[in-house]
Simulated scan of single mutants.
Amino acid sequence: MRARVPLFRWPDLERRGIDDPTNACELLEMYVGPQNEPGDEQFQITVCTPSALAEQLRHQHFLIGRHYLFVRELRPAEVTRWLSDRIAVLEAPTWGELAEKIGRIGLWEFEDYED
């Protein structure tokens, strides 16, 4: 089984845009589902430039980097194309196993969910 990404959303950028692509840290929502099947689930990743990371570290002494993607400049179309390509090559026998692999990139809405 492989995945498809029908939608990327930049919630904050949709409202205000990018002031400086070399100094940006933005949430990206990815809606991902199995190829040739209906439905999708949300994954989130923070896309951050080195200067924005340095700014965050001026205010916090420690920052865990899980579910972060670091880029030289925030170019939304390039980021989404790169992520789409990266997710497209992942494969697993079931959606749950595939979603866990995608969850290594972005926070899966059902991560750690138990019935």
Results as ranks from 00 to 15, higher is better:
M1F: 05
A3D: 09
A3V: 10
R4A: 02
V5H: 11
V5E: 05
V5S: 09
P6F: 14
P6V: 12
L7Y: 12
L7A: 09
F8L: 06
L13M: 10
E14W: 08
E14M: 15
E14I: 05
R15P: 00
R15N: 11
I18Q: 00
D20V: 03
D20H: 03
T22G: 07
T22D: 07
A24R: 03
C25H: 12
C25F: 05
L27S: 03
L28R: 09
M30I: 15
Y31D: 12
V32H: 11
G33A: 10
P34C: 03
N36C: 05
N36L: 13
E37T: 11
P38W: 14
Q44V: 07
I45Y: 04
I45Q: 05
T46I: 07
T46S: 01
V47N: 01
C48N: 06
T49G: 00
T49R: 05
T49V: 00
L53N: 00
E55R: 11
E55A: 14
L57A: 03
R58Y: 08
Q60Y: 12
Q60E: 11
F62K: 09
L63A: 09
I64C: 02
G65W: 12
G65V: 01
Y68L: 13
F70D: 01
V71Q: 00
R72D: 05
R72L: 03
R72W: 00
E73S: 14
L74D: 02
L74W: 02
L74R: 00
R75I: 14
R75F: 10
R75P: 03
E78R: 15
E78M: 12
E78T: 10
V79H: 11
V79Y: 12
T80V: 12
T80A: 01
T80L: 07
S84T: 09
S84N: 14
D85N: 04
R86D: 10
I87Y: 10
I87F: 15
V89K: 10
E91F: 00
A92P: 13
P93A: 12
P93Y: 07
T94Y: 06
W95I: 04
E97C: 11
E97A: 13
K101Y: 05
I102L: 00
I102V: 14
I102H: 08
I102P: 08
G106E: 01
G106C: 08
D112Y: 14
D112Q: 11
Y113H: 03
E114L: 07
E114T: 04
D115Q: 14
D115K: 07
